[in-house]
Design a protein around this nucleic acid. Structure first.
Lengths: 234, 234
DNA sequence: AAAATATTGTGTATTTTTTACACAATATAA
DNA sequence: TTATATTGTGTAAAAAATACACAATATTTT
């Protein structure tokens, strides 16, 4: 290790900087998180949040987007930083500070891992494995962030298919907030916000009455957002 | 410059890391921000957010608290990170990434500058000077963060004296949110939350009727907070 | 000493929003 | 054909938000 060429030199100590992404997906019933299995030490074989080192000419946002694509081949619907984790000894190799990102993606069951053929898969929130580094702390902070931003961002539409039923939307909100809503009141509230477009189509999915489909009305959302009038209270 | 000893060497490029604090105070009428005048290049003589470089063995939070104390001699009532600013060219010297903090302090008119005798003073939000680096962006993000957290944190009590009147509290909320409230409805809402202790004392301050004083009931607040029931809607 | 001024304390009626709640319709599976 | 599970739909009651006005009082001015 000491033999490696060290060509980046500074007068003062600089930490290494990484991004780590907590990627949420929704399979229709459960909220899930995407983890990758580490191939190298430290924590080889351990599950971890996807992430990697900041490059010289990219912003922290560009780094997160690049790493996420490289490791999971997923397109993000929302990617937002929510915290810096900087305990000096959080990485045994050297000082590494990480900027944590919350990512929302449309769920696809099987993830094609990254270039380095890392295994990647979804975990239910209540069946998470041990995580490398301080990733458990980052994960916990991400859940709280998700519960916070649900009031200010239409995150349902990032996580659901472009056409979805009201019960699907409700299940998603219930999964994120860990509560349950009255079906009729939930629907009234959502429609009242004015960013749902009712479609003519229906979605048949089982031995019961068919649910109608909706889509996200992005124009109306952008209008509300720009007027500062978008807010969902529960 | 090139003659300086460069003793911290790495295999890959590492950015320098700083913290910058957007420090808010309230003088009873206006919300204010504390700025320091830079003594050295780059941007010598220019106003900037107080901040400085991360040391080897401190977390980013410890760095922010240390820098804030060193540069302003103020005790913070609330200190919370809200964003990373990382454009590769934001500092002309070298790559410097900054973690931005929001700080709330009890207002004192005159600030005793830091060790390096930097000038430090309060500015009204609508009379800010030009700022160094990308500090204008950081400042704007801080205002938005403040407007966001006012719904989840009792920030009035961080910014006001330990005893305060209802009109003072109202003026503060109005200053932060940029709106005005009906006096009676504001009082009813605030008292309804249940974290205000009415005091026997009164505060005489002018040619008019005296206002009663209140204090913050931290015990009740902690109780509400731990039950997840603290939220102020406007 | 009296009057003027500015600001505080206080309550109610109206509107809006939230909550609680039940039964008929229908797509599939048995 | 029947059973099953889930959807669509409306109303009444409770709670919360809003709009609004006048009497009280500490200081300053006359």
């Amino acid at each position: 290790m000491e033999k490696e060429e060290k060509k980046y030199c500074y007068r003062y100590p600089h930490p290494a900087v990484t991004t780590d992404c907590v990627i949420f997906g929704f399979d229709g019933t459960n909220l899930k998180v995407l983890l990758v299995k580490r191939g190298v030490e430290p924590y080889a074989g351990c599950w971890a949040l996807p992430g990697g080192f900041l490059k010289e000419d990219e912003t922290i946002e560009e780094c997160a987007a690049r790493e996420l694509l490289e490791e999971t081949n997923l397109k993000t619907e929302l990617l937002q930083q929510f915290g810096v984790f900087s305990k000096p000894d959080r990485d045994p190799r050297e000082r590494v500070m990480t900027v944590a990102f919350l990512a929302l993606v449309k769920y696809v069951p099987t993830i094609k891992g990254g270039d380095d053929a890392k295994e990647a898969r979804w975990f239910d929130l209540d069946a998470m494995p041990e995580l490398a580094f301080d990733h458990k702390d980052i994960f916990r902070a991400a859940i709280m962030q998700l519960q916070r931003i649900i009031h200010f961002e239409p995150i349902g539409f990032e996580l659901l298919d472009s056409k979805f039923t009201m019960p699907q939307l409700q299940k998603l909100y219930e999964a994120i907030l860990g509560v349950s809503f009255d079906r009729r009141n939930f629907q009234r509230k959502m429609l009242g916000i004015g960013i749902l477009k009712p479609l003519k189509e229906k979605a048949a999915r089982g031995p019961h009455r068919t649910a109608s489909l909706f889509s996200f009305d992005k124009e109306k959302y952008d209008l509300l957002k720009s007027n500062g009038n978008f807010r969902i209270e529960f």
